[in-house]
Design a protein around this nucleic acid. Structure first.
Lengths: 205, 205
DNA sequence: CGGGAAATTGAACGACGTTCAAGTCTTATT
DNA sequence: AATAAGACTTGAACGTCGTTCAATTTCCCG
């Protein structure tokens, strides 16, 4: 019976990978249970033995996306001196552009992180929440260098504001809505605003 | 036969109003053709005599939402001196906070403006596009005061970046995702970043 | 080898937007 | 006023979706 649960875990893994592939290729709206069943080689109903519902599947895919994003940010911030305040703005710019590059390279999967809404009444599980919060540690360190006297609470608030602002520019930009920054100008504009914000924060520290 | 088209137009108007009401109350996902038919007092199929499909209906609702937003922004910028550069940042802050207040007060309708995706292959009609672009005139005026020597192209780009950044903070904030600025702190944080950006732009003009 | 439990199946369900053959009503002409 | 022609309206039916569950198959251990 060890065998059974083992195979189940393998199938679940395959299911998540198939879902990831489907989302990456056709977007969140292109994720269809019947396609997954065929891709994994099981019946339609069997999906619900591996996973409670489609929401769980999307969350599991999101978890993998966040892990890759985390790795990208870790790479980008490696070697930045946490104490020194001179290059803190540079670090923020690097983080923002890494985030932008990741969004570009993982467009549909990255969108899914924010587009997905749980089914009516369903609640986001704890592990998915903490996963998301963890990402802020990258922003928090340079912010602390820029404003050493700010409270931890204010810094956390500021980091969310900063993230949301950059995120907003990227979301609309990569959507190519005509209201947005053209995708070609994205990196430049991100550098502009992050530098303005970083310098502004530093000077009135 | 004048009578007929007249009644059709009235019914179409009623349909749009019913759709607006439905979206405002239950969100874009809560817009159902069968409910609309009942609300307007026609059969399910008759909807497709008044409107080509649900997409058109959503666009018509969006048009009304944009008109109200435009009015709110016109109010907020009335009396701001276009030439003077001192209060240009103040004007930008006022615009941003008016936008935020509008989003709060029209949460579901405002979200619909950005959540809605046209059906596969369908193209957004021209009138819907120009409607959206018009809104930027409010941002452009104070930006021009802050950076008088910048090209029109750069100013347009900058205005989109500024809009997207503020928009991003508001979208995530009003969604109450845990990654976002808490809704209670929204206005404060918006003022912080718009002021940082405005002051930064002015000083290095 | 056999029997009870567990896993698997896929047809069926309900909801959705959309379509269309059939029915009804309007209008213009005689 | 009668009637033919045309336009409008209807709601059952279609295809798609996620999800369920009675029936079946498979598995494991005594």
């Amino acid at each position: 019976m060890v065998k059974t649960t083992e195979r189940r875990d393998q199938q679940r893994e395959a299911l998540v990978l198939a879902a990831e592939r489907a989302i990456a290729e056709r977007g969140l709206a292109g994720l269809r249970a019947r396609d997954l069943a065929e891709a994994v080689g099981c019946s339609l109903g069997a999906i619900y033995n591996l996973v409670q519902d489609m929401d769980e599947l999307v969350l599991r895919v999101g978890s993998r996306t966040l892990a890759r994003l985390d790795a990208a940010l870790a790479d980008a911030t490696r070697g930045s001196t946490p104490g020194s305040s001179d290059d803190a703005t540079d670090t923020l710019v690097a983080i923002a552009q890494t985030y932008c590059a990741f969004a570009r390279a993982n467009l549909q999967l990255w969108r899914t992180l924010f587009e997905h809404r749980m089914a009516e009444g369903a609640i986001v599980p704890e592990w998915a929440i903490t996963e998301q919060m963890t990402m802020f540690r990258y922003i928090l360190a340079p912010l602390r260098a820029l404003r050493p006297r700010a409270s931890e609470k204010d810094l956390l608030l500021l980091s969310r504001t900063l993230f949301s602002a950059v995120h907003g520019v990227i979301v609309l930009g990569l959507e190519e809505k005509l209201v947005a920054v053209p995708a070609a100008a994205l990196d430049g504009q991100i550098e502009v605003i992050v530098r303005l914000l970083g310098d502004g924060l530093k000077q009135r520290a």
